[in-house]
Write a protein that binds this DNA or RNA. Structure first.
Lengths: 193, 193
DNA sequence: ACGGATCTGGAACAAGCGTTACGGTAACGC
DNA sequence: GCGTTACCGTAACGCTTGTTCCAGATCCGT
């Protein structure tokens, strides 16, 4: 036998590095060498941990979804009135903090790549529909009397609003400040409910 | 003297080709060779018409803004009640037709590139703020009694909603169908007004 | 302590990129 | 009709990219 590698740790470190590079330099700056440099290792290790650049990208994409999903799960488990939970879940999807700003920038990069990459597109669609379903489910607890169609419509409206806010904030943080986003989301919530 | 070139025509044709490539293959597929092939010429002509790949990109970006601005201007000049005009302007910014879908895909590409390209970022911010100002102006004609803060908030909400719809529709046309987008925009309008 | 399997780093490869330079070619004034 | 001049296509360059491969380093079991 011989030394054994820490595969899981490497995957995690490299995904984090991928994320950091993507947030700093965008899709164009995302090269294996840049990721390796950011992770403090060589390109050899990168391609021993992931078979492909593509696989690295997909893993980083999955990580992004897992983080947001875990955050939303925690908010739901945390309790509060249904309205408060819905508001909190929507707020965590916006770009209200520097962390979320970075996430939004990375998200835009993945989205642009997904438009011409079937595997990324499939992941985006799946994750976004899950988010939509989550909002719809929360709406059910808020307004049990509504029919399904009304709920779906309201969920689409809220998701489009919050994703649009995050997107615009990523590109123009000054105009779409945290306050502006909160106000827009608040008004949207009052309107939808 | 000798033959003289049709510089303006070339710029237009090449910008259109840039657009087409961007819509089909995304940012990663946007190469000078691909643009030249799509325009039916050689890469030499491309770089005789534009000094740089960057200049070509910026020109295509400006073209995108000019198109949408011209459309919005025409809708405003076309007449109708203030509410109808506002609704029409918002609808033309969504992804309700195949043409708008393509535009939305291209727009996402430019946006992602803008996150790490100052010149593109500056253009995005300028154009988006112009759109915001337009919506705010239309809101003024609809609801003259409102104070400026209320108007700005409503404009941010509507713009985030319509841009979010276009974005999500570009990535998942099935879920965010034209009907779903129209319903979300309609509800948002009713809510904001 | 040591053998040996296993992992990692770095060099090397082909492919594709943006860009440049040059030669042929087509049009205009005379 | 012809020389001159501007324009365009082609081929090449240097560079960076993703990927491969091998030699050296590293650690485990005995």
């Amino acid at each position: 036998m011989a030394r054994q590698r820490d595969a899981a740790g490497h995957r995690q470190r490299l995904s984090a590095a991928t994320w950091a590079v993507l947030a700093d330099d965008g899709l164009a700056g995302l090269t294996l060498r840049a990721v390796a440099a950011r992770a403090g290792c060589s390109t050899g290790l990168v391609l021993h941990t992931f078979p492909d650049k593509r696989a690295l990208l997909l893993h980083a994409r999955d990580l992004l979804h897992e983080r947001t999903a875990a955050r939303a799960d925690a908010l739901e488990a945390g309790g509060g009135t249904p309205g408060e939970v819905l508001r909190a879940v929507l707020h965590q999807a916006a770009a209200l903090t520097p962390d979320r700003h970075e996430e939004a920038r990375v998200w835009v990069g993945f989205l642009a790549a997904a438009l011409s990459d079937p595997a990324l597109a499939e992941r985006h669609v799946r994750n976004n529909r899950r988010f939509l379903a989550r909002v719809e489910r929360l709406l059910t607890t808020c307004r049990p009397a509504w029919d399904a169609g009304h709920r779906t419509g309201a969920a689409v409206q809220l998701v489009a609003l919050v994703e649009g806010s995050a997107l615009l904030a990523a590109a123009d943080p000054e105009t779409y400040s945290a306050d502006a986003q909160r106000a827009a989301l608040g008004a949207g919530l009052v309107a939808a409910l």
